[in-house]
Amino acid sequence: MSSPFEQVMIGSDVELSDEAELSLLETLDHVLNKGLVIAGEITISVADVDLIFLSLNVLVSSVEKANEVLRERARGNLAELKSSHDTAESQ
């Protein structure tokens, strides 16, 4: 059974640079929020919970950032294309 750490993927045209972080978030989502429960026997220290919320925000921010990067890249490619087209025309 392969690990989901290697298999998190983003649909459409977005790729996240830090898949490990996304995978940890997915793991947190599963192990903290779901699963078999014995009444009254969950005894976790919540000292790090704020970090979990923070990480979730990072996830959403990362997707937005990835989109920005893609848009920038697309603009860069377009400019490069236009530049080479102009050069070819001037020759």
């Binding site: 392969s2 298999q7 998190v8 993927m9 983003i10 649909g11 997915e26 192990v31 078999l36 997707v63």
Partner: peptide, 15 residues
């Protein structure tokens, strides 16, 4: 945008 992950143990369907 779609984020797909897995395979996971069935955490959501265990309780």
């Amino acid at each position: 945008h779609f984020l797909t992950s897995g395979p996971w143990p069935p955490y959501t369907f265990a309780n």
